[in-house]
Design a protein around this nucleic acid. Structure first.
Length: 776
DNA sequence: GGGGGCTATGGGGGG
DNA sequence: CATAGCCCCC
């Protein structure tokens, strides 16, 4: 099999080992996706039926990528392989099996916002103080409970957890948890955790011996990013693989050093337990990195060596040294963004990089704004991933609420939202009564509307009847009419369209465009999914002869809930990527900027108390720097706006973990030295706040940084741009003396071509506005 | 019932 | 700073 020649000996050994449990420990850039895809290709060529192969990933993107790559190697039989995210694969199974555990097949998936909103309502109904019972904190506690298979009953029996809650003065969390489960159930809704938890329950209860069906079905199971699985995910895998007579064909790929999801219950114990659970396990370590140049790899190893517990592994590269890492020290977050943007422009000119080769990474999504401002200033195309997605906009959520109701009218969150906007003559008081009747009878609010126990005015009753008729009509048509036609009808009949249209402000027009964009998306979704040859986001089905053909409204709603906006990146668009470090996992770029390396931010203030938290932040930093193939730039600001006020922060402790020989410190005035008086005084002129914050400058922890690569000129003074014309002899702080050969470009971004005397490059292109040249 | 303006509050990463 | 939630007025 010729494709096996493309693997190194260790990769090949892992790939051809097709029977029994296999663990591949794969460092960043070590060809892990290649190993996974070739392993599946190898299985197919060894005549394993594609329907018996399952590959689970964490993102839609990696699932899609994997399928495409397998198809390239073995052709269309790859389409019958089940490859998808844990959540989408399990949701698909649950669509078939939900009724066995009392859920409707058309169950709704609640996203984080829905969940938070349900919890808010419950907390309010219980007359608890929402400032004490913070809904999102409760959400994560419930989520962690589910992820560890702790039911409300087990929660009550758990002395530790109950004690924690009492100490935190939140003794009713478990009651909220219980009510939340009941509320979801009667709403026919599953949250993200339920997609796992309910599947686990299904297999555990095992009605009609359903688990056997899936054990037969998935004889070869693959898991990518195994370090990010939680206890519950592992428990489901065990249900599928660990049984009497099992071939135990489970192939997992992971890297403990890249485990960055402990906050959502991921546990490194899964890798350690895996070795215990499968004594026949064969382990392969991929340590050669094919992605990054030397200094980047060296820095990555240095950083990760500070973590306490890890599987022994040292990544290495035989790639040449090339650029050192650039470290940029800034006074403010604004300066940081400006210099990152400027440097991007410079790199684009000097190295002819397209935008698509460049990514700016940050710890928190809130940091994106400054970078956006400065990239826009330089007319550079960018795209922000994460943060508020399209489907979180109010008008979009309003429309989606009506669509959800048409599919599942029991869905209480959708019902509340729909009744709220546009208003339907059903008042808050009526809603409260509905909710309490529903709670008492354990029925949905939709059903409670018909309850004789409901004590409301005739007017309210009439309004509810009208609403039920409207939604009931849509529900009836959902099975016969095309998704697009129905959605268009719902947009009109709900009154949303007219209401949005009456708002002629620019924002109002934007909102109307957004809801129309939803209709377009539905139309496209329906088209794509009626075409069997097209590979959809999760093109798997129980009947493997047919590819996914489900273009229904229900299928659309499921897809958008499980999709993140990083998934709809269009190929061929040339833009700079802005995203959180978490979102960047698994991706690579020629040039990467890792920003905001400050105490309290990266590492996050939330992590500082607990060494485990710090280790995870460090792994996150490790993930960040190993995204870079050739150019890595790390930046930090000494002062940053946070919640409306400036706060001074020390440089991140992670910076001193990198050996100084691997980076150059790049100051605002050429290469200066961090923390030195000269550097600071040079900086002060750059900020109106310089004087008042200069007390924070010196940082003893990183005084051991590199001296500048080239000694700065003693009396250097930058000349105004107007004096920098072709023919002039100039001095540059880093490159020394040279002659301007040519000047071109618009005033804002004027670029000079300069021949420097002592320079290995024949000539350099330099953006004048920030290059700081002095005419001699 | 709807909308505008003010105040208090939160504050991380994501399927 | 952004926004949710509240109060108040129409």
């Amino acid at each position: 099999m010729p494709f096996l020649d493309e693997l190194n000996p260790i990769q090949r050994a892992a790939v051809v080992n097709i029977e029994g449990p296999v663990l591949v420990i794969a460092g960043p850039g070590s060809g892990k996706t290649r190993v996974l895809t070739y392993r599946i290709a190898h299985l197919l060529q060894s005549h394993v039926p594609p329907r018996e192969i399952l590959a689970l990933t964490f993102t839609n993107k990696s699932a899609r990528e994997m399928k495409e790559r397998i198809e390239r190697v073995v052709g269309t039989s790859a389409q019958q392989v089940w490859a998808g995210t844990f959540h989408s694969v399990f949701a698909r199974i649950l669509r078939y099996e939900a009724e066995k555990i009392g859920y409707p097949a058309s169950f709704t998936i609640y996203d984080t916002d829905d969940t938070t909103s349900v919890l808010k309502a419950i907390i309010k109904e219980m007359n608890l103080d929402p400032t004490v019972y913070n809904p999102s904190a409760i959400r994560s506690r419930i989520s962690l409970s589910k992820s560890n298979l702790i039911t409300p009953t087990l929660y009550r029996q758990n002395v530790d957890m109950m004690q924690q809650d009492r100490t935190a003065r939140k003794p009713y969390i478990v009651d909220i948890y219980e009510k939340y489960l009941a509320r979801c159930f009667r709403s026919g809704a599953m949250d993200f955790d339920d997609l796992l938890y309910q599947l686990y329950r299904l297999f555990q209860q095992n009605p009609d011996n359903v688990v056997d069906k899936y054990r037969q079905r998935f004889r070869y199971i693959h898991v990518d990013e195994f370090q990010d699985t939680n206890y519950l995910q592992y428990a489901i895998l065990r249900q599928l693989v660990k049984y009497e007579g099992s071939p135990e064909n489970i192939f997992i790929v992971g890297d403990d050093a890249q485990s960055i999801y402990a906050f959502r219950g991921a546990t490194i114990d899964n890798i350690l337990d895996f070795e215990k659970d499968y004594p026949a396990l064969k382990t392969f370590k991929l340590e050669q990195n094919y992605r990054s140049t030397h200094h980047i790899i060296a820095a990555a190893n240095e950083v990760i060596s500070h973590n306490r517990r890890q599987l022994q592994k040292t990544i290495w590269t035989d790639r040449e040294e090339r650029q050192k890492i650039k470290l940029i020290k800034c006074i403010t977050d604004d300066e940081e963004a400006r210099r990152v943007a400027d440097l991007i422009l410079e790199q684009k000119h000097r190295h002819h990089l397209p935008n698509a080769d460049i990514a700016v990474l940050y710890r928190t999504n809130a940091q994106s704004r400054k970078f956006e401002e400065h990239l826009r200033r330089l007319n550079l195309a960018y795209r922000v991933f994460g943060g508020m997605s399209f489907y979180q906009r109010k008008e979009v959520k309003d429309l989606v609420a009506y669509l959800r109701l048409a599919v599942n009218p029991q869905d209480e969150e959708a019902l509340r939202r729909a009744i709220n906007f546009p208003t339907r003559g059903i008042s808050d008081t009526t809603m409260e009564k509905l909710s309490s009747v529903a709670g008492a009878a354990n029925i949905s609010m939709w059903e409670a509307m018909l309850s004789p126990a409901l004590d409301v005015t005739d007017r309210a009753r009439k309004a509810m009847a009208g609403f039920r008729n409207m939604v009931g009509d849509w529900q009836n048509r959902a099975s016969t009419e095309s998704a697009f036609k129905l959605a268009a009808e719902i947009l009109k009949k709900s009154g949303l369209h007219d209401l949005l249209k009456s708002d002629t402000s620019p924002e109002g027009i934007g909102r109307l465009e957004n809801v129309n964009a939803v209709l377009d998306a539905i139309s496209e979704f329906a088209d794509v999914n009626q075409n069997a040859s097209v590979m959809a986001n999760d093109s798997m089905t129980l009947n493997d002869e047919t590819a996914s053909k489900d273009g229904s409204l229900a299928a659309y709603l499921q897809t958008i809930t499980l999709l993140t906006d990083a998934d709809d990146k269009k190929e061929g668009d040339d833009f700079i990527t802005l995203m959180s470090v978490h979102a960047a996992k698994g991706l690579e770029y020629k040039s990467v900027f890792v920003t905001g390396l400050e105490e309290q931010l990266f590492p996050s203030f939330m992590s500082l108390e607990d060494p485990k938290g710090l280790d995870e932040e460090r792994r996150l930093f490790y993930v960040a720097i190993t995204r870079a193939k050739e150019f890595l730039t790390i930046s930090f600001a000494q002062n940053r706006y946070r919640y409306g006020q400036i706060r001074a922060n020390e440089p991140s402790r992670f910076l001193e973990e990198i050996d100084t020989k691997n980076f150059d410190l790049v100051g605002g005035m050429g290469a200066a030295r961090i923390g030195t008086p000269a550097f600071n005084s040079a900086q002060e002129g750059r900020s109106s706040r310089g004087a008042s914050i200069s007390g924070n400058f010196a940082n003893p922890r990183i005084l051991n940084m590199n001296p500048p690569a080239t000694a700065a000129l003693a009396n250097f003074r930058a000349s105004p741009i107007a004096e920098l014309i072709a023919g002039a002899n100039v001095a540059h702080q880093k490159f020394g003396e040279g002659k301007i050969i040519n000047v071109e470009g618009p005033k804002e971004n004027r670029v000079a071509t300069i021949q420097f005397k002592n320079d290995e490059m024949s000539e350099r292109r330099i953006v004048l506005k920030f290059a700081k040249l002095q005419v001699l």
